[in-house]
Simulated assay, not measured.
Amino acid sequence: MAQLGFESQSWLAIAQGNSRTHWAQFESGAIAARGHSRHLQASETPVSLAKLPWWSGLSPEVPRVVASVVPEQWQRLQAYLPPKTPIYNLGTVSLPLGGVYRGFGLDRGLAALGAGQRWGVPLLLIDGGTALTLTGIDGEKSLVGGAILPGLGLQSRALVQGTALSDEIDMTGGELPPRWALETGEAIRSGILYTLLAGVEQFIEQWQQRFPESAIVLTGGDGATLAAGLQAIAPQIAPKVVLDEEALFWGMAAMVSQLEVTRGDRS
């Protein structure tokens, strides 16, 4: 693979997740800014696009490196960016991880790659996104396996949509609710948070039996909430868990030098 020549300069990482777009602006090999925004809509205008924090802050010449798990979002991005904007699609590159199966999520792989480079392997990566994923990587950088379940927000929305509840429950931030709650909203938060945290705790304990010296990393939009919850219910485990909200972006950065030089290619 050829070197693109912009790795140490300015470029924008765009990760199109299941429910949001995550972005990070790299300057001289470091993350200068990062954030999250809504997905691109089918009928965007220059005015609506300009309101996206990652859209208008950079010139069209700045390379965009994209990791998308939503094909429709990738297509819209290509359609809306100016014609000569250089775009590089990480979906066309093989991840340097062994044992990856067909259909393994690109976002999972990139986050595991970034966390492994920053914290070492073996690695257990717990990504609290729309789906909560657990991904185990051994000392040879091969996939051991993992698990996927609905994330905090998705579980809450499922209860609202499947019952007579009228309001969605905020699952992030704040202290853990009483385990034995006396109000419906708090009871929902209790049921989802305590059962999910207990499951994560068991996965961590079982992983540590197999890989006692493993790094354990939390990431994703719910990463901070999960880290605080583990501190409350499993103080013996929490000190061994690292919160890294930039793992995905550093995984993308690790792949930049392996991209083909396809500047301006929209295929």
Rank of each mutant, 00 (worst) to 15 (best):
K84S: 12
I204L: 02
Q206K: 15
S37V: 06
G57T: 15
S56E: 06
L132Q: 03
P239F: 01
W55R: 05
K240W: 08
A227L: 14
L110P: 01
D222G: 04
G174L: 03
D167N: 13
A164S: 08
G129S: 07
Q155T: 09
W11S: 01
Q161E: 15
A111I: 09
Q236G: 13
S37D: 11
E201K: 14
L165S: 05
T135Q: 09
F249C: 05
E27D: 15
G139S: 12
A232N: 07
E213C: 04
P239R: 06
A33E: 14
T172D: 12
A232S: 14
G162M: 02
R102Y: 12
P63A: 01
T133D: 05
R179F: 10
Q9H: 14
L124M: 14
G264H: 08
G91A: 07
S156C: 03
H22G: 09
A181H: 08
V200N: 01
T133L: 05
I148D: 01
I148H: 02
A32W: 06
R20E: 03
F104R: 09
I14R: 02
W55T: 06
S190H: 00
P122H: 11
G128A: 14
V65G: 02
I87S: 02
V93P: 02
R266Q: 08
R118W: 03
E201A: 10
G146D: 01
E245D: 14
Q75D: 14
T163C: 00
P46V: 13
S48E: 08
Q236S: 14
E183W: 08
T184H: 00
A115M: 07
S59R: 13
T184F: 00
V100D: 05
A158P: 06
L97Y: 13
P46R: 13
V160E: 11
E175V: 12
G98R: 15
